[in-house]
């Protein structure tokens, strides 16, 4: 084991995660998301809130990473292909120690490292610049290939959206990854049912989606993605899958944790809450 690995602050060598602590982190990060989007005045709350449990499971338990050494060579890589949900990643990176949490207030403002969509050159902890949908999984495939070529044991994770899954490039990568036997690659579909113009099922349905990924020769795990324990278990199952890449189909609720967002999925894809809405959301989350 490399010396860098011993410095890793969060890693899967902790056998028993503190579930209560992780659940509390989820609650706090939802508050972060609402506050930063309100401050920014624009952004994507629904798909940020839906992904909270999986992001917490990754950054605060599963990933081998070191916020004090963001470019540590043997770190696990996480690529947020659905880049518009980056507020959830910023909240995790800030709380993990990649940057001062005060920066969350600068989201989407001139000069901020917290761009509207992920920018790896500006923000520590961001592995790939994404936001043009469909591209992140291809980048993750390349990272996983590099690990194989260098005989390193880092793992690569990539989160996709269900609306994003309409992009043809996603399916090119779906073909490529099993071909190159990338058992070190784990994709996660944040299946929150919504996209900008409405429901995925009404616009361009992707179902049966688990069957599609299985047919592309991926190991498929289906979970309730807003259940932190199921997220952790699914990530462990991906680790145990040695003959192919894994796709975690993570059924989530868009806007999870804020009832008025949960109840109107299409309305909360890409609109920031106003003052009253923010107060109502925070009251619910701070309960």
């Amino acid at each position: 084991m490399s010396s860098g690995n011993q410095n890793a602050s969060c890693c899967s060598c902790h056998p028993t995660p503190d579930i209560d602590q992780l659940k509390e982190l989820c609650r706090l990060m939802r508050i972060d998301i609402i506050k930063m989007l309100h401050k920014a005045g624009s952004g994507h709350p629904g798909g940020s809130l839906s992904a909270v449990e999986m992001i917490v499971a990754l950054y605060f338990h599963h990933l081998r990473h070191n916020p004090k050494e963001p470019l540590w060579q043997d770190r696990d890589r996480f690529v947020l292909s659905k880049g518009h949900a980056v507020p959830v990643q910023y909240a995790a990176l800030a709380r993990a120690g990649y940057f001062d949490p005060a920066l969350l207030d600068t989201l989407r403002t001139l000069g901020s490292p917290l761009q509207g969509h992920p920018d790896r050159l500006r923000c520590p902890g961001i592995e790939a610049s994404t936001g043009a949908l469909g591209q992140g999984l291809s980048i993750a495939v390349g990272m996983a290939m590099a690990a194989k070529l260098d005989q390193r044991d880092y793992r690569v994770f990539c989160m996709l959206g269900d609306g994003e899954s309409q992009e043809g490039q996603v399916w090119e990568s779906a073909l490529n990854a099993p071909t190159f036997k990338l058992n070190n690659l784990c994709a996660i579909l944040d299946w929150n049912l919504g996209q900008l113009d409405g429901l995925v099922a009404d616009i361009q349905p992707i179902e049966p989606v688990a069957e599609k990924w299985a047919a592309f020769n991926w190991h498929v795990v289906e979970i309730d993605g807003n259940d932190i324990e199921q997220c952790l278990a699914a990530l462990q199952e991906a680790d145990r899958t040695t003959d192919r890449p894994t796709m975690i189909i993570s059924r989530t609720i868009k806007g999870k944790g804020v009832s008025f967002m949960e109840n109107d999925i299409p309305a909360w894809h890409g609109v920031a809450p106003n003052k009253d809405q923010t107060e109502a959301a925070l009251q619910e989350l701070q309960g």
Binding site: R77, E127, A128, G134, Q135, G136, S138, G142, A146
Partner: peptide, 27 residues
Amino acid sequence: DRFFNVGITEAGMIGTAAGLALCGKIP
């Protein structure tokens, strides 16, 4: 060992090249 024919997936190929480059390769 360092040659990959990705098939007719040009968009995926470009993204994959980016991922390789971000991990120190010259694709």
